[in-house]
Design a protein around this nucleic acid. Structure first.
Lengths: 234, 234
DNA sequence: TCTCGTAAAAGTGCATGCAATCGCTGTGCC
DNA sequence: GGCACAGCGATTGCATGCACTTTTACGAGA
C-alpha cells in the first residue's frame, strides 16, 4: 500500500489510528475481548503495521486494549468488579476536584461555572439529551481544571475516558436529566460559597448515582455495534 | 547490527529498553530536559530504532519522557509546580487507600501489615536506611492493595513511580527514619481499629511531610549522575 | 554586523521484509 | 478413544530503508 490516505484528518498517522481504533472501541463497534489483528487493522485503514502497532501500544497504556507479548492485542474486557472499582475511583477523584475547586477557583472560573450551569437548565426543560451531554462534559471539565492541579487533572481525565463507554447510556433513563442538573446545582452552590467539604461530598454522590445508573446498562450488554463509519472520526 | 544482545535479561526487547532508559532517567543518569536521540539510544543498546521508539512511547505514557511530533523525545522536566501537584495527588491517593484499607482489609491483611510494620522498627534503631526503604515500599504497597480497588491501585502506583526520582533522598535527612516509622504507626493503629477517617488523615499527613522533605532536595539539584552501568538493570 | 533566505544535514515517521514465536491440525502411540 | 508431539500456517517482533520534517549552517543583501 502506498500513496496518501484518502482522508487526511490531523496529526500524525499514529494519532489518527489511536482515534480511529479508540473510537471503535468506545462506541462498541469493536467488542470487548475481540482480537485486534495488526495486519487487518493496517489494511483496514490503509497504513502499514508500524503505526498500528504504536497505536495499540498507546491504547494499551490507556487501558482500552490488552496486550500480551507474542499473542497480540484484544479489546480490553472489564469485569463488573473492575468497572465498580473505576466508578469508585472516579467518585473519589471528582470529590477531590470539587473540594479543590471550592478552595482554589478564581472569581472568573466560579462565574463561568455558574453561568454555564444556569444556561444548561434550559436544555433540561427541552429534554435535549445530546446538547445536555455536551454541557455536562463541559461542567465536569471545569471542575477538573478548577482544582488547579495538573496531576489530579490528568488522573481524572484518564479515568473519565476509560469510563466513557459505560457512561453513554445513562441519560436514557427517564428523569435522569433533571436529576443530573439538580446534583450539579448542589455542587455549584457549595463551590460558590467555598464549602469544600460539601462540594466534595456532593460530587462523590453525583458520581455514585451515575455509577448505579450505568451499571444497569453495563449488566445488560456492553454496547450494540453500529455501522462502521469508514472515515476516521473526531 | 546483528546477533544476540550481550545480556539477555527478560521479556521482549522493548521491555528491556523501557527498563534501561527508565532506570537511567529515574537514577538521574539522564538529566531532565536532555534530548533522547533514537539512533543514539539504539546504537547504545545495540538494537534497532523500532523497539527504542516503542519504549519511548511507553515512557511518554508513564510521564517520564516528553515527546513532540517530529521533534523527538526529551527527558521530562517537571516544574516545581507540577511536582507539588503530584505530591498533593499522592497525598490524596494514599489517603483514599488508607481509608479503604481501614474499611476493607481482611484479618490476614491487617495482621501482615502489623507484623511487617513492627519488624521494621528494628531497622530504625539500626539506622539501616537501605533496608528500611525496602520495608517502607512494602508497607505502602500493602496499603494500596488493602484498598481492594484495582483502579485506585493503578493510579496510586503510577503516581508513586513518577515521584520515585524525587523521593530517593528523603531518608538522608537526619531523624527522618524514626519520624517515618512513627507516622506509619499512626496509620497502622487507625487501620487496626477500623477508623477510616483517622487512617486517611494520617496517610495524607505522612505524604505531605515526605513532600516537604523531598522538596528540599528537588529545589537544590535534580540528581547527580552516576557512572553508567552498561548492563540493563533490574 | 545583523537579518533573512536557502540549502544541506540531522532526525523523525512510516513502509516493508525477515526471523522468531504461537497456535492449530493431523498423525502416531499408548 | 484420548493424549502427546511434530509440522505448518498465522501473527507478532524487530531490522532496515526511504521520505518528509525540522534544524542548523552558510552566504547574500541591507
Amino acid at each position: 500500500m502506498s500513496g496518501k490516505r484518502s482522508l487526511i484528518r490531523s496529526g500524525t498517522t499514529v494519532d489518527q489510528m489511536v482515534r480511529a481504533i479508540g473510537d471503535r472501541i468506545v462506541t462498541g463497534f469493536l467488542r470487548p475481548g475481540e482480537k485486534l489483528d495488526e495486519a487487518s487493522l493496517a489494511a483496514r485503514f490503509d497504513v502499514s503495521r508500524t503505526p498500528v502497532r504504536e497505536a495499540l501500544g498507546r491504547l494499551s497504556a490507556m487501558g482500552l486494549v490488552e496486550r500480551r507479548p507474542n499473542r497480540g492485542a484484544t479489546v480490553a474486557v472489564v469485569t463488573q468488579e473492575h468497572l465498580a472499582s473505576m466508578f469508585e475511583s472516579m467518585a473519589e477523584l471528582e470529590a477531590i476536584c470539587a473540594r479543590f475547586s471550592a478552595e482554589r477557583m478564581t472569581a472568573a472560573e466560579r462565574r463561568a461555572l455558574e453561568i454555564e450551569h444556569q444556561a444548561s437548565a434550559r436544555l433540561v426543560q427541552l429534554g435535549a439529551e445530546e446538547d445536555y451531554e455536551y454541557f455536562n462534559t463541559e461542567f465536569h471539565t471545569r471542575l477538573y481544571r478548577g482544582a488547579h492541579s495538573k496531576h489530579i487533572y490528568e488522573l481524572t481525565v484518564m479515568t473519565r475516558s476509560r469510563l466513557a463507554p459505560f457512561r453513554r447510556a445513562q441519560f436514557m433513563l427517564p428523569g435522569r436529566l433533571a436529576k443530573s442538573w439538580q446534583e450539579h446545582d448542589v455542587i455549584v452552590t457549595a463551590i460558590m460559597r467555598g464549602d469544600s467539604a460539601a462540594a466534595g461530598q456532593a460530587a462523590k454522590d453525583h458520581v455514585s448515582i451515575v455509577s448505579e445508573a450505568s451499571a444497569v446498562f453495563a449488566a445488560v450488554d456492553p454496547m450494540k455495534p453500529a455501522a462502521d463509519p469508514i472515515g476516521m472520526s473526531s
